[in-house]
């Protein structure tokens, strides 16, 4: 379609300038974070607008490891990430396959149960779960965070998987079935290799969720500093040393926490956006 002159003028006078201003506003907090992370304890409290600090103290990114057990926090966070991904990509995929392709008794009823748990707000589970794990003596360990993840306790992921698997042509699994393949074999050899987009989306969501989760680690790991995740460590940095003189350190840890998520985004953008779009349009 040929664009009218009016439309072209409007684009260059309004649309692009607006988008550029918008982009600047969106990126500004990140630029400020990075800039602040390079300041010194002195320059961080200067009342000035200056995006390139003077001096630029790159050493902040090294000294932070002496001041904060970041490596330990990262390691702890990785337990959450790995169990989340296994639960999401393996356990939820198995359940999703059964809901999509295997006829078993009460499947429809159970699927409605699945849909209703998807809508159950987390807030009604916080207290009873704490009570249950407390009775089991597991508060102050990783178990309350890991067990639900390993069991694939995420109805939304199962739902996503089911929807995707239903679109895989039946002929593919039939052929495998002719060769005497079991359901598990079909799942592993036919379904999984043909489901890269949904596996990637669920994998990315799992990583993000585990990396960012705050409330559950706060409740279960609160007093146990040696078990803290990055989210808890970053929050605690705010409490240390009064407040604002350690702002550059807070920003160093923020950058450290943001970069892996940017990398995940860079590599999985396509799948992520598909997944987000799907969740926002079809529930």
């Amino acid at each position: 379609m040929v664009e009218g002159l009016y439309a072209r003028v409007a684009k260059w006078t309004f649309v692009y300038p607006l988008l550029l201003v918008g982009s600047t506003v969106m990126l500004f907090p990140l630029a400020w974070t990075f800039s602040t992370s390079l300041k010194t304890a002195q320059t961080v409290t200067l009342r000035e607008v200056k995006l390139i600090p003077d001096p630029v103290q790159w050493a902040n990114y090294i000294t932070i490891f002496e001041e904060s057990p970041l490596l330990l926090y990262t390691q702890n966070t990785m337990y959450m990430v790995v169990t989340s991904v296994i639960g999401g990509v393996v356990i939820c995929a198995l359940a999703g396959y059964a809901f999509a392709r295997i006829g078993f008794p009460a499947r429809e009823v159970l699927f409605y149960v699945l849909l209703s748990t998807m809508m159950l707000p987390h807030v009604v589970q916080i207290i009873p779960l704490f009570v249950i794990f407390d009775q089991l003596g597991l508060v102050g360990t990783f178990w309350p965070l890991i067990i639900p993840r390993l069991l694939g306790h995420n109805a939304f992921y199962i739902f996503l998987m089911r929807q995707f698997f239903r679109g895989i042509p039946l002929e593919l699994s039939d052929a495998a079935r002719m060769d005497g393949c079991t359901e598990l074999g079909i799942w592993a050899r036919i379904i999984m290799p043909n489901s890269k987009p949904v596996l990637a989306a669920v994998g990315i969501f799992s990583i993000q969720f585990a990396w960012n989760d705050f409330l559950s680690p706060l409740i279960y790991l609160g007093p146990k500093k040696e078990l803290w995740t990055l989210a808890l460590g970053l929050n605690a940095q705010k409490g240390f040393e009064g407040e604002i003189t350690s702002l550059h350190k807070m920003m160093v840890i923020s950058v450290y926490m943001i970069i892996p998520m940017l990398l995940v985004f860079a590599f999985g953008q396509k799948y992520m956006i598909e997944g987000v779009t799907f969740s926002g349009m079809k529930g």
Binding site: Y97, F104, R107, L151
Partner: peptide
């Protein structure tokens, strides 16, 4: 009827 379906959703049933 394939009871094997239950094996696939067993972890989810437990978690639910």
């Amino acid at each position: 009827t394939k009871w094997v379906g239950f094996a696939f959703i067993l972890p989810w049933i437990l978690s639910a």
